[in-house]
């Protein structure tokens, strides 16, 4: 299991488009992906759960990847969030 803490910096947070991009990208990895934010855990492969978690700009989150290709998945997740989802 690998994890990393990171702050969401794109202005709109995990709204529709970033959530779509994130869930799509994570679906390519066999491992489990969890987003821990505001005291709860969210399935990082589920767009519905990500939207429901309403993660806004400035929130510190922890991405946890567990299973096959966990390192690759974590790198991809961190890069997406750091680059602000190309907003």
């Amino acid at each position: 299991m690998v994890s990393k803490k990171i702050t969401v910096t794109n202005s709109q947070g995990f709204h529709m488009r970033p959530a779509m991009a994130f869930a799509n990208a994570m679906a390519k990895f066999p491992c489990d992906v969890l987003i821990k934010a505001n005291g709860s855990s969210t399935d990082g492969k589920s767009i519905m759960n990500i939207i429901a978690a309403c993660i806004k700009c400035g929130t510190e989150i922890e991405v946890v990847c567990d299973g096959q290709q966990e390192n690759e998945a974590l790198d991809a997740a961190v890069e997406m969030i750091e680059s602000g989802f190309g907003e």
Partner: peptide, 16 residues
């Protein structure tokens, strides 16, 4: 068109 693609993706959400 992304609005509509979003609908498809929501419905195909593995959790849902």
């Amino acid at each position: 068109s992304e609005i509509i693609l979003g609908h498809i993706m929501m419905m195909q959400d593995p959790y849902m």
